[in-house]
Amino acid sequence: MKNIFIKQIFVLSLMAISVVANSQDAMLKYNFVKGKTYVLNTQLNNNIVQTMGGQEMKMESGINSTSEFLVENVDEKGNATILVSLKDASVASKIPAMGRDTTMKFNDLNEQTRVVITSAGKNISSASVSAGNVSMMLGSVEKFTKFIQLPEKSVKVGEKWSDKLVDSIKSSPQSPVNLVITTDFEFSFVGTEVVDGVELTKISFTGALQINGSGNQMGMDLFVEGNGKSEGVLYFNPKSSLVVKTDTNTEMDMNIAVSGQQNMTMPMNQSMKTITTLVEK
């Protein structure tokens, strides 16, 4: 019997990609206070289009998640040790052409990662404390908590700075491809803006992404290559010295190849809109 499940295996791996792309705009600068807890809400809408023979198959998904950041320690250099707990998540997915519509909710997950970052946002270390299937599916808590490194100097309106990062994601049962992702972002200090009655510093950014990867599943070799663009804004609260809101649009064109039981190569487009908000608990 002909196996039509092959296409579905890509979805999970791409969820991981989307989260990494998203993670680049998660935070700007940190002035975490020992003992305080912050709550990060993330809304991610993700559209994947696979094309074959001029026909398109669309898959839509949305993730709403809540994570808590407990600042366990801040050392004399300003490096913060933070326990990040993924608390709640809901994942909705839809394949309009197949009439499939699924929503999954996960409460009180408490899947945790401990991260140590510099005051500029540079990641010193991260280690999983407790992980389960849900965080794996969402791209892992660890990936959620990678922070953008910011210039360690005061910036003026119109000033630009860049952040280039090469990251990797190891394969897992949920995402069978080892991925290498290169991101090259340029940030620009736009000025100040009043949002919900609070004066915030607005920073815009654009970025380029490149992705390569390979793996194996069910005896088939899998390959991924692609590139993308990202653009959006960050809002930085100078009083708390925290990034309190981000709004990002990311689009990636990827090529997927499978060899083994079937030889197949297909293009894929993935577009994501991500909004995050951070508040003190």
């Binding site: 290559e225 590139n227 663009k229 649009n249 689009e251 090529n255 190569t265 487009n269």
Partner: peptide, 22 residues
């Protein structure tokens, strides 16, 4: 869309990464 790349079809002959016999 913000990506305007000419994706077309991922021909192996155009890729350094995808296997050529795929």
């Amino acid at each position: 869309h913000i990506m305007m790349t000419p994706q077309g079809y991922p021909w192996p002959s155009l890729s350094r990464f995808l296997p050529q016999d795929n």
